[in-house]
Amino acid sequence: MILSVDGIEFSYNGRPVLRDIKFSVNRGEVLSILGNNGAGKTTLLRCINRILKPKRGTVLIDGNDLFSLSSREIARRVGYAAQRHEGGRITVFDAVLLGRKPHIGWEASEKDLEIVREVLASLSLEDLSLRYLDELSGGELQRVIIARALAQEPRVLLLDEPTSSLDLKNQYEVMKIVKDAAEERRIAVVLVMHDLNLALRFADRFLFLKDGTIYDCGGLEVMTPENISAVYGISVAVEKLGDIPVVVPL
C-alpha cells in the first residue's frame, strides 16, 4: 500500500465539502474518482497534496504522515497536474525541468537534466524539447504537464481531468501514458475523470463521490448501472462490447 487516505474532512467557509473520506491505492494502480460536478472531486485531490488543508484526517505515503512534512518534501512525493495550466513562453525541456524544483538547491544538476531527458524520452517528447509551450497542441501540452509531474519522481501522481480538453486519439494516448507510468514506475495514480468509458478502460479501481462523501469504492464490480445511476442521476446500461465494458446512458 503506497497511498492511504483516512478520515479526510474539509469545509469551505463553514460548509462541509468532504466528509469521512477513506481509501487506499496500491503500487502501480490507477484509481479514478468519479462523480458529478461539485461533488468534491478536485477538492479531494487538493487535500491529498495539501494545496488545501483538510480539517481532519490523515494521508500516509509509504507509511509516512504527509501532513508532518514540509511543502517541499510533499512535492518530492506527490506530483500534481492541475486542471488548468498556463502555456507560457518556456521550452518543453524547461517546463519538465521545473518538475525537479523540489529537488533542486541552487541550480539544476547533471542528475536533474538526466531525469528530464529520461522522462521526455519515455513520453516521446524528445522532438519537442526545444519548442515553446505556447506553440504546442492541447495533447502535446497535456503530455508535457504529465512529464513535469513525473520528473518530480513522485510516489503518488494526482491528475485533475487529464483528458478533458483532448480529442479522442489524444485522450487514449494520454491515458495510455498514465497507465504505463503507473506500472513501470510502480507509483500510485489518482485521477479525476468525467468520461466513464475512459475510466473503465484504464483505471484499476473506482471511487464514486457523491455530495462530498464516498458512495462506493472498489474494482470493476462497483461499476454497476445501479451505482452509476445513483451517483449521476441518470439511468445507464453497462454492457460488454467484445471484451470491453462500456457505459451507455439510456
Partner: peptide, 23 residues
C-alpha cells in the same frame, strides 16, 4: 535570483506552483 525557480513555478499557474512546494 535566489527565487528564480519559484518565479518559474508561478508562471506555470498558482496551483502548479503550490504542488511544486512553492509558498
Amino acid at each position: 535570483m535566489a527565487n528564480r525557480w519559484n518565479y518559474n513555478a508561478v508562471d506555470g499557474g498558482e496551483e502548479t506552483a503550490k504542488s511544486l512546494g512553492v509558498n
